[in-house]
Nucleic acid binder design. Structure first.
Lengths: 232, 232
DNA sequence: ATGCCTATACTCGTCTACGAGTACTCGTGG
DNA sequence: CCACGAGTACTCGTAGACGAGTATAGGCAT
């Protein structure tokens, strides 16, 4: 994935960020990340951590800056960021901020395969999701408000973003569920019949055939997300 | 990642879906996926394809259903889904549909590290993103409308979802950009000063220290996303 | 009929991700 | 004063992701 970057793991971005502030040794990086509550709730991937550090060094983005034992603890190696590391960090950040990606998550995939399950079950599952989402969002909203009182908002944008996206998802879900329930959405009838009788609705077949023929008469804008193909 | 599933690759979900419709051999699966325009624009990962098929077989989710050479082409192995495969498919879909995940994408990470870049640069990058997003969204909107005329909407939900999320993202971006530009957002001043003078603003330090002490006096709701920890 | 190009269907080897395990150190209670 | 548990800092082996390469078969132009 994203092989364009010499070190393609997002953990590497965080590490570079950390080292841009001060030199650290790997374990310290992990602690700092964890303590900041960054990256999920950091079920730290120790393996990845050291692999990524090694790779960052291999490509010259970071450099050993001393390998001392400080007082007691076992020996440890401190790293600092290099000029190229800084450049990579800036470039990577720039790309991530300026180029929108398509969501690649499990939910999208599942949505597109949801026809496998009978409509009523899907309604139930989506309702569960919606409920959870609403509950979590309320809590996150409160947390965020709490923090906003004692920290500058500039430090909270990513939390605000995540919340905004979840709220939007909840809104969308509410609409879709309603449409499936009341039958406003076209195709739900065939879908339901298919699960009751086992008969494969004709639109599925048509979809496949259309595809097979290469739907040439249709608008194809394939570089959909404004072409961020890997430029090999 | 997601080691709870015996085969944790999302490609596996698509393959199971495919095989739930009819038996296929691996290459055929790839073609069918590609032709349906599923999964990104499918820069097919041939390596993953065969690894995943092998694993699906290893865990009994699919089974060889004949290994014939049909007429001409080189020999090939056809697979069919098993009972357990169906069960896994249903269960996996259910989970993906009902349990909301937090976005783990690059944008979120980049947002949280955006302080590395000077504010004006960030404004520029986010504006670029917004422009691209608006342009793409308009096109996708049109495409979707086009397809909606000749296909049941039930087959288009995942496209609708993706579009809705992108529209929401654009809306959020518009707001945030404005707030950074006009200084409504607190912290932007320190942020700007930091990049002009090199001085590290006190709130960063405070954040770290607070974290170090273990902010015990604050609300910590750690299983944030309604606890979907891997239940080892 | 013969070379060559394309499509088909995989195989293989490398590089990455990751977690379980290791080893060493301090503090503390019995 | 030493057993034990909780940190600290990492190592290593395995499983997975992935792309470049391979091999074979037909089509078709000469």
């Amino acid at each position: 994935m994203a092989k364009r970057r010499k070190v393609g793991n997002l953990l590497a971005l965080s590490l570079l960020s950390l080292l841009a502030q001060r030199p650290m040794y790997p374990y310290e990086m992990a602690q700092t990340l964890r303590v900041r509550g960054k990256e999920q709730n950091f079920k730290i991937n120790w393996g990845s951590l050291y692999t990524v550090v090694a790779n960052l060094e291999k490509y010259g983005f970071i450099r050993e800056s001393g390998t001392g034992r400080e007082g007691r603890q076992p020996e440890r190696t401190t790293y600092q960021i290099t000029e190229q590391g800084f450049a990579e960090l800036r470039d990577w950040l720039s790309e991530l901020l300026s180029v929108p990606e398509d969501e690649r998550g499990g939910f999208v995939t599942a949505l597109s395969e949801a026809g496998i399950l009978p409509p009523d079950e899907v309604i139930g599952l989506l309702t569960t999701r919606l409920t959870t989402l609403d509950k979590d969002n309320a809590r996150k909203q409160a947390d965020l408000a709490h923090w906003a009182e004692r920290l500058p908002r500039a430090l909270l944008i990513e939390a605000e973003y995540q919340l905004a996206m979840r709220v939007a998802q909840a809104g969308w879900l509410r609409g879709v569920i309603a449409e499936i329930v009341d039958g406003t959405m076209s195709g739900v009838d065939s879908w339901r019949r298919m699960h009751e009788t086992g008969e494969v609705p004709p639109e599925f077949v048509e979809l496949d055939e259309r595809a097979m023929r290469g739907w040439d008469d249709e608008p194809r804008h394939d570089g959909a997300d404004s072409g961020h193909e890997k430029d090999t």
